[in-house]
Simulated assay, not measured.
Amino acid sequence: MPHWVARQLHQDVHLAEGDRYAWELTGVVVGRGPDCEPLLVSVRPFARLTDQVVDVAARLYRQAFVVGDDGT
């Protein structure tokens, strides 16, 4: 798993609480949102991410990045 994928998944995992879960989507990028997230059209679900994938992303994130560092 590339580090940037682990970072994005770890940063947004809080959105998958309760009956919601993480998805990987395909689509056409038409812009960027206020948090620089891609805005898509023609969206299609590609894969539902399991808890195990989320756990791997969290471990990789902690190994690859200084947690709490804003990158500046």
Rank of each mutant, 00 (worst) to 15 (best):
L9R: 12
L60D: 08
V13A: 14
H10E: 13
D69L: 10
L40E: 07
G33M: 02
Q63V: 10
A57D: 08
Q8G: 13
V54E: 15
A58E: 14
Y61C: 15
P45Q: 12
F65P: 10
W4I: 05
E24Q: 14
P34E: 13
A58K: 12
V56S: 05
D55I: 09
P38N: 05
R20K: 14
V41L: 02
P34D: 11
A47E: 15
Y61R: 05
V29H: 00
V53P: 01
T26K: 13
P2M: 02
G68S: 13
E24C: 03
E37H: 00
H3I: 04
H14L: 06
A16Q: 07
L15M: 05
E37Q: 01
R44Q: 14
Y21A: 09
P38L: 09
V13G: 00
A64Y: 01
T50I: 06
T26N: 11
T26G: 13
R59M: 10
A57L: 09
Q52F: 02
E37Y: 01
Q8M: 06
F46P: 00
G68V: 02
G71T: 03
G31H: 03
L39M: 06
H10C: 12
L39F: 01
A16I: 05
L40A: 02
D70K: 13
M1S: 10
L25S: 03
D12I: 00
P45W: 06
T26Q: 13
A6F: 01
V29P: 03
G71D: 12
V13M: 08
R20F: 01
G18T: 02
G33D: 06
W4C: 06
D69M: 11
D19W: 07
L25N: 05
G71H: 10
R20A: 06
A16S: 12
G71K: 11
L25T: 08
C36M: 06
R48P: 10
D70G: 07
V56G: 03
L39G: 01
G27R: 05
L60F: 00
V43D: 07
V66G: 07
W23D: 02
L9M: 15
D19M: 04
V29R: 04
P2K: 12
S42A: 15
W4K: 09
E37V: 03
V54R: 14
G31N: 05
T50L: 10
A47F: 06
P38C: 08
L9H: 09
V66R: 14
R7V: 00
S42F: 04
R59K: 06
W4N: 11
G31T: 03
E37I: 02
T50W: 01
A58M: 08
T72L: 11
P34G: 09
G31C: 05
E17N: 09
R59W: 02
T72P: 05
Y21G: 12
D19I: 02
C36Q: 01
D12W: 04
V29F: 01
